[in-house]
Amino acid sequence: MKSSWMDDWVERGFYFLGYQLTLDNITPASSTIEKFKRRIARLYEQGAGSIRIGRYV
Score class of each variant (00 low, 15 high):
M1G: 10
M1W: 10
K2H: 09
K2S: 12
K2G: 10
S3W: 14
S3H: 14
S4L: 08
S4A: 06
W5V: 14
W5G: 15
M6T: 05
M6N: 11
D7E: 05
D7V: 11
D8T: 14
W9K: 13
W9E: 08
E11N: 00
E11T: 04
E11M: 04
R12P: 02
R12Y: 09
G13K: 02
G13V: 05
F14W: 08
F14E: 00
Y15A: 13
Y15D: 15
Y15C: 14
Y15M: 15
F16C: 08
L17W: 01
G18S: 01
G18R: 01
G18T: 03
Y19D: 06
Q20H: 11
T22Y: 01
L23I: 04
L23H: 02
L23D: 10
D24N: 03
D24G: 03
D24F: 01
D24H: 05
N25L: 12
N25W: 03
N25A: 13
I26M: 15
I26H: 10
I26C: 15
T27I: 15
P28N: 03
P28E: 10
P28F: 00
A29W: 01
A29N: 08
S30F: 11
S31Y: 01
S31H: 09
S31A: 09
S31L: 08
T32R: 08
T32G: 06
T32V: 02
I33D: 12
K35S: 14
K35Y: 11
F36V: 09
F36S: 10
F36L: 05
K37T: 01
K37I: 10
R38T: 08
R38K: 02
R39N: 05
R39A: 07
I40E: 00
R42N: 12
R42K: 13
L43R: 06
L43S: 05
Y44G: 11
Y44D: 15
Y44L: 05
Y44A: 10
Y44R: 10
E45K: 01
Q46S: 12
G47N: 04
G47T: 00
G47H: 01
A48Q: 04
G49I: 07
S50N: 12
S50M: 13
S50A: 11
G54L: 01
G54M: 11
R55T: 11
Y56L: 00
Y56M: 00
Y56N: 07
V57S: 12
V57E: 12
